[in-house]
């Protein structure tokens, strides 16, 4: 019987460990979605020559396609430079940066999140606003529920998915709700724009509130319905050099490119507004 006692004890312990691992593992899988690569040994450029080397750019998830295109152009225009991007939710990126992740440039989807990084003394200089974004209604292709205005979303028979107030797109949604006096009886409050778009493009929801650029980026999988009240909540995107950046000249050159004519043209094509 004593072997059984010992075995039982070991089994109990094993079950505890497995259960704890299952539970924590599932929660942990969401904690870090971005990939980070170290900047390597960036050669320091002298002030007179064009900056070369490598920088790491942390940018909001909503900038992914735009910044990828912009980065390719920047590298073509500046031979000898390499940009490495890490795209994730702005809050995630701040968590990574305060945790010591190496980066040279940070582009946030809203000023509040950039503020968090400034508070943490991780911003070098003053952040520059480089783009704006407003909300738009996304519907499944062809708009089957015939959503025409923001007021329509107050109708409970239209299944609307929005972002939770805790995330920037949800905060913008709440601002428009307050300004218009329309309360949306949302069937779900998602943690990210991607989750809202997923529910809409799959036809699960009749409508979702996302950014103009998200609707444009989703192509034919969703149909956009712009609404004038969106001007009540304009999201401003700031960009800044991270303190401790390994290659400050190149970081500054990239920021100049984003705020310059070429960068602004690409951003405008993607649907971003002028700051």
């Amino acid at each position: 019987m004593s072997t059984d006692t010992a075995r039982r004890w070991v089994q109990s312990l094993a079950a505890l460990v497995i259960a704890a691992a299952v539970v924590t593992g599932a929660a942990a899988c969401s904690s870090s979605s971005g990939t980070t690569e170290s900047a390597g040994n960036a050669p320091t450029a002298s002030a007179t020559t064009a900056p070369t080397g490598t920088i790491v750019v942390f940018a909001a998830a909503s900038l992914k396609s735009t910044f990828t295109a912009l980065g390719t152009q920047f590298q073509a225009a500046n031979p000898g430079t390499t940009l490495t991007f890490n795209f994730a939710g702005s809050s995630d990126l701040v968590t990574q940066l305060t945790g010591g992740a190496p980066a040279d440039v940070f582009a946030s989807a809203d000023t509040a999140t950039m503020g968090k990084l400034t508070t943490a003394n991780l911003v070098s200089g003053t952040p520059v606003n480089f783009a704006t974004n407003v909300l738009e209604i996304a519907t499944p292709p062809g708009n089957p529920a015939n959503v025409k205005s923001f007021q329509d979303l107050g109708n409970a028979s239209i299944k609307t998915v929005i972002c939770a107030p805790a995330v920037p797109c949800g905060a913008a949604t709440a601002t428009v709700e307050t300004a218009t006096g329309v309360t949306i009886p949302a069937v779900s409050q998602e943690s990210s724009v991607t989750d809202v778009l997923g529910k809409v493009s799959s036809g699960e929801a009749d409508a979702g509130l996302v950014y103009v650029t998200d609707v444009k980026g989703a192509g034919t999988t969703v149909t956009g319905v712009p609404f004038p009240e969106s001007s009540q909540a304009v999201n401003t995107y700031p960009i800044a050099t991270v303190s401790g950046a390994k290659n400050v000249p190149l970081a500054q050159a990239f920021i100049d490119y984003v705020t310059g004519t070429d960068g602004q043209a690409i951003l405008a094509t993607a649907g971003f507004g002028k700051p």
Binding site: V161, V187, S188, Q189, E190, S191
Partner: peptide, 9 residues
């Protein structure tokens, strides 16, 4: 759950 059910308090 996040993909299939959504997220509402």
């Amino acid at each position: 759950t996040l993909t299939f059910a959504g997220s509402l308090q």
